[in-house]
Design a protein around this nucleic acid. Structure first.
Length: 365
DNA sequence: TCGGCAAGCCAC
DNA sequence: AAACGTGGCTTGCCGA
């Protein structure tokens, strides 16, 4: 995008260093080891140490966040500005991700930070040309909607049809809390389960994510499957099909091979199981947004709109739009995206696309 | 100088 | 301590 703004995170200073004290020196014992036998120092480890009252781990985490943003984004992206266009241009690969998603390289513009305040500052550097706006249109919960359709879960389909807060509805139905009395913690648990379902849930993974015991996680998952037995049926069917044929399919019939499904090693086989569960969901979402991407440019031309499609980020399309055409462009793009499965596929849940506008990508998101 | 691996971390 | 899915990039290290 044009006019890359130079960012200087004020808290990053060259020459700053420290030595990480050993577990012994910090009065700790039994630190987790990596595959090579070194002490693991991933964010989760340091967060738990920080929570135990130590000062250093939190400072290391802050330092890591800032150096990550500076080396991977602030510095690297400026080096990639094309001198002829004044813009950063990515390359998309269409045959890398097994599920059919696109991937983005040199630079990867599908992993620009968004989750933290500092990270979002990177996004503000992606700006529209003078007289133009950036418009972001993204699918709302597309993978959960597709899961509800594929697994034929009436309760979830109805919640989507009525535009309800899907995580709150799940929390209410799984944990028996009335929707009107939903508390943030219960909703958070349901949200984690919903994500886990898409990925092929395990008690180990959910326990890790929610920082609860595997026993508690197992109980949550069982409660979920009791309430939504169609989900369990879908998972078993996906695994069985992968085992029998070596592949699963998206709703459009595109095949996704799952080689790990034939592994003898139980851990690798489980990996294949989860891939078989996730691939039709993630792959169908990829099919749908690609159909939308094919239809948008001719639809814009037909409507005499001059917006340019700049980026795809899995469930989001980013456009550069003349200021006077923003409203019409949003209406057109939402229409195309929300109907992109038709006529080849009629979904039993509505697809919803939300739009944002701004002078930069952070504002538009 | 280059390529590969490990560890870590960014996104959806 | 990341096997709950899909990717790519950086740093540090090693060997060709």
């Amino acid at each position: 995008m044009k006019a890359w703004r130079i960012l200087r995170p004020s808290s990053v200073r060259t020459g700053m260093f420290c030595r990480l004290g050993s577990f012994d020196e910090m009065g700790l014992e039994g630190g987790k080891k990596t595959k090579t036998g070194a002490y693991a120092t991933g964010a989760d480890i340091l967060e738990s140490l920080a929570a135990q009252g130590h000062d250093l781990p939190g400072r290391v985490l802050d330092w890591r966040q800032l150096t990550k943003l500076k080396s991977t984004y602030t510095d690297a992206l400026q080096d990639q500005i094309n001198p002829e266009t004044g813009r950063v241009h990515t390359s998309y690969s269409q045959a890398v991700a097994s599920t059919g998603r696109l991937s983005s390289t040199d630079p990867n513009l599908q992993n620009i930070p968004v989750r933290t305040e500092e990270g979002r500052k990177i996004r503000t550097a992606f700006v529209a040309e003078e007289g133009m706006k950036l418009v972001s249109v993204d699918y709302s919960q597309i993978e959960l909607r597709l899961t509800a359709h594929i697994a034929e879960v009436d309760a979830l389909k109805q919640a989507f049809a009525e535009g309800e807060d899907i995580h709150a509805v799940t929390a209410s139905q799984v944990f028996g809390v009335p929707l009107a009395e939903m508390d943030p913690m219960t909703r958070r648990k349901a949200k984690a389960i919903n994500f886990g379902i898409i990925y092929g849930i395990s008690a180990f993974g959910l326990a890790n994510n929610l920082r609860i015991t595997q026993g508690e996680a197992k109980a949550f998952i069982e409660a979920y499957f009791d309430r939504y037995p169609g989900i369990k049926d879908y998972m078993n069917a996906a695994k069985a099909q992968a085992r029998e044929r070596g592949y699963v399919e998206t709703l459009f019939g595109r095949r996704i091979h799952i080689p790990a499904i034939k592994e003898k090693n139980p851990a690798r086989r489980s990996f294949g199981d989860r891939a078989a569960i996730n691939a039709p969901i993630q792959g169908t979402a990829a099919d749908i947004i690609k159909r939308a991407m094919i239809r948008v440019p001719p639809a814009l031309a037909e409507a005499k709109l001059s917006a340019r499609m700049l980026l795809q980020v899995h469930d989001e399309l980013l456009f550069e739009v003349p200021e006077g055409e923003v409203d019409d462009t949003i209406a057109l793009v939402r229409e195309v995206m929300e109907n992109a499965s038709a006529p080849a596929l009629t979904l039993s849940v509505p697809l919803v696309a939300d739009a944002g506008v701004g002078d930069n990508w952070d504002e538009a998101h």
